[in-house]
Design a protein around this nucleic acid. Structure first.
Lengths: 272, 272
DNA sequence: TGAATAGTGTCTTTCAGACAATATGGA
DNA sequence: TCCATATTGTCTGAAAGACACTATTCA
């Protein structure tokens, strides 16, 4: 397991620029067109010029490795490159529904989409060379059992996050390396402050299972004793069930299920 | 100063429903139209059905009170109600530029827009009764000196955040109470983890000035001694300048300017 | 028995929080 | 002088982090 501290996912500091930023208009005078009432200029048939899509960063932990679901593009532009699943937002549809639709239709992965969170909006004018496309990206997680999607027919594949941005990883389409990077960072932060990690394991799970989720996402090693105490001291994070489980060797571990929901304060301490 | 702990801004738990949610389609089959390549169906002239606007929550601290800039609507629907400044996103425009445009044109408030952060996307299908409008809300702050915008001609006004949602406050248009609530909560969280508070005071400022910003935003009282130590122990948060300032009575306070930028870890401790 | 993992006990360090004490100006 | 605010000093308790120790299973 890679515990050497090397991070292959890029940081914000060196994110690549959009290919075609276009001329940057900060033409303040244009606002006068709208008047003080928001989209007041709309009439039926006068349709907007900016397309809105939903892009989904779906993460799982597979045998101790943090992975993300990507799809391979089969059309120009950027054919053969990899992207996060996305869908154009339908007129009467919420972001969450569009996110689920994108993942299910493209990859066959049917996961619980009850814990989808907004991630960020990607708005650089040149990010899609065809037309102006603004992406509202979301963050979603699948429990441990989530298998690599489909067989030969599916265009989706789980990629280890550590490979993305390296030669061993996929070549990313458009600005999707940005999206993945942002998703990874958000996921790491959410594990500090929320109970999202419990959605990355199948029930029932042991404290060790949960610890390995943290270790995979954060790419660190955690002290088992201290981790256990912290988890059990957080109300609503986990609930113990009857029974124990023994995997290979070692003392059988108590089994737990997800708790009623918890905000972690103080947060789960993250080394580094 | 209101330090009684009462909060008048609503929490997520009781946020009002959108007026016209429409039928909730989670029609997964529709995704097949797009194929695995995102907005592949686009051709010139085939314009999207969802409009994207940028709504700005702009906060300041005015004499110890957290205030937000709102504009009064002068057209139906929701004429006479108050909204956060917004603008329809132009085809070649970034969110930040649209945010600045919205605030400047509607209110005359010309503030530094170098610290605009994304807030959230508001996507309920019925949130605007006229057409499908998705709002990408942003969070912005103005330094202490920011005056109430304009005179009788301006439609903008700074409202104390504590009044919003009460009889003494504005009646909010659409789902803008949600937007304001989300903005306030995010602002409070950002003060814990970032140096955003320094953008809410004019330079030069005293540690006491900065403390009063925290007290206004969080609606708490902070221990001056401990606050000072925490601020000075955080590298890059503030930088001392020559000179002191005495306001009324009391020992003159050392003067500081904003530091080179800081992420606060451990965060600024927030009581409660 | 030895290896491996789960779980408990306990000590140290760090930091938040409370509050006393001192510093320095204006009324 | 007194009062108000700034600044420094110091103590206490909570929690992180390290690590020794016990518990329990399989090979």
């Amino acid at each position: 397991m890679a515990k050497d501290g090397k991070k292959s996912v890029r940081r914000d500091g060196d994110r690549p620029k959009a290919r075609n930023p276009g001329k940057k208009r900060t033409d303040l005078a244009r606002a006068a067109d709208d008047g003080p009432d928001g989209p007041g200029g709309y009439v039926a048939g006068d349709r907007p010029a900016v397309a809105l899509v939903v892009d989904v960063t779906l993460f799982a932990v597979d045998r101790g490795v943090l992975v993300i679901l990507l799809v391979e593009r089969r059309r120009a532009p950027d054919s053969g490159r990899w992207a996060v699943p996305g869908a154009v937002l339908e007129p009467d549809e919420e972001l969450t529904a569009a996110a689920a639709r994108a993942v299910v239709a493209r990859t066959g992965v049917l996961e619980p989409f009850d814990r989808v969170e907004q991630l960020a909006v990607f708005d650089a004018p040149g990010r899609d060379p065809r037309t102006r496309v603004v992406s509202s990206a979301v963050l979603a997680v699948a429990p441990d059992a989530a298998p690599p999607a489909g067989g030969a027919l599916a265009s989706g594949r789980w990629w280890p996050v550590a490979t993305i941005g390296t030669d061993a990883g996929p070549t990313m389409a458009f600005d999707h390396l940005d999206i993945v990077t942002t998703g990874v960072e958000r996921l790491r932060a959410r594990l500090e402050h929320s109970d999202l990690a419990t959605a990355l394991v199948d029930e029932p799970f042991t404290i060790g299972d949960l610890r390995r989720v943290y270790e995979a996402v954060w790419d660190v090693e955690l002290e088992p004793a201290n981790f256990r105490r912290k988890v059990l001291a957080t109300p609503g994070l986990v609930a113990q069930t009857a029974g124990t489980r023994v995997v290979g060797t070692g003392r059988p571990a108590d089994l737990y299920v997800r708790g009623a929901g918890a905000v972690l304060h103080p947060p789960m301490p993250r080394p580094g």
